[in-house]
Write a protein that binds this DNA or RNA. Structure first.
Length: 284
DNA sequence: AAGCCACGCAACCGCCCAGGA
DNA sequence: CTCCTGGGCGGTTGCGTGGCT
């Protein structure tokens, strides 16, 4: 039996995308929007697999992408989210405006894993390195190893004994790096930028609110945040004039989904609160 | 200067799920 | 209810690049 291939492999290009291909894809999506990826390559005149087009768009061409280096605050946020969600990169990415799951996954594997190990923390269990792997604390909600089906089937379940406070993780600005921040070799400007980032994500309370509303950040906020990051991302920003894509940003914001709702708290106090207390997402 | 190696990241692969017919 | 298709996700691969010898 087997699945039908997503495309005619014999007639598709592979490997790195050319500028022409990028431009074709951008132009097409600008005119017709996202969706129907299978038929998109033909319609756009691309010799690419539909999935390849989708990935290229999502991971590289999308106008609301941030790119550039991850800030320390983003690092910590990723770590906290990973401790809650495990390798659910898409969920983690939903909490990091302008970042893609692929980008975060790569960053995790190349930087954060090493960072945690150097701190003596097991990147998988988030427990001490020399501790046995099976160390799930009863007080921690752990989405790792949750069957995939449950991801989208989190219907409200009154019988479930669920303490939402367990979703909130304190991420005090304490001891991010053992020692001082200067150990990272940052310049003063970088440190200042990092502080801004930390303010942006953690707020003044120094408490990381992980109520986990999912969504690509709204265009307004995101524009602001990308304004901070454009300095280091300019070189990698492909072909795009951001202003041309405002409508796309708005459309994406409209697609935002609150995780409270996904988890079945759509009518709860918690869900209402996420509009006002969330660090950077306001949709619900 | 050349070769080797390690690393980072873009892209691909294959599986899974949701929704429609 | 079953099958099929489109889309999404996590894991893996492979190429480009920079550092070291």
């Amino acid at each position: 039996m087997g699945r039908s291939p997503c495309c005619e492999k014999a007639h598709t290009n592979k490997g790195a995308w050319t500028k022409e291909e990028d431009q074709r894809l951008i132009d097409y999506i600008r005119l017709h929007g996202e969706g129907c990826w299978r038929s998109l390559p033909k319609a756009a005149g691309l010799l690419r697999c539909g999935k390849s087009c989708r990935l290229r768009w999502i991971n590289y061409l999308r106008p609301d992408l941030k790119r550039g280096n991850f800030s320390e605050a983003e690092d910590e946020l990723i770590i906290k989210l990973h401790s809650l969600l495990g390798n659910k990169w898409s969920l983690i990415a939903a909490r990091l405006p302008g970042r893609t799951d692929n980008e975060i996954k790569n960053y995790w594997n190349t930087h954060i894993k090493r960072k945690l190990i150097s701190r003596g923390i097991d990147p998988q269990t988030h427990g001490p390195l020399n501790q046995p792997t099976n160390t799930n604390k009863s007080t921690e909600l752990d989405f790792r190893n949750v069957p995939k089906a449950s991801k989208s089937n989190f219907a409200p379940n009154p019988s479930r004994d669920f303490n939402f406070n367990e979703f909130q993780v304190k991420a005090k600005a304490e001891s991010i790096e053992e020692g001082t921040s200067s150990s990272s070799g940052m310049t003063t400007d970088e440190e200042q930028q990092q502080e801004e980032e930390q303010d942006k994500y953690a707020g003044n309370s120094q408490e990381l609110d992980l109520e986990l509303s999912i969504g690509i950040s709204s265009s307004g906020k995101n524009n602001n945040s990308t304004g901070v990051s454009t300095a280091n991302s300019a070189e990698s920003k492909p072909l795009l004039d951001k202003s041309n894509f405002q409508f796309l940003g708005q459309a994406m914001a409209a697609k935002a989904v609150c995780l409270c709702c996904q988890l079945g708290f759509g009518t709860s106090e918690i869900c209402r609160n996420c509009q006002s207390t969330n660090g950077f997402n306001t949709y619900c």
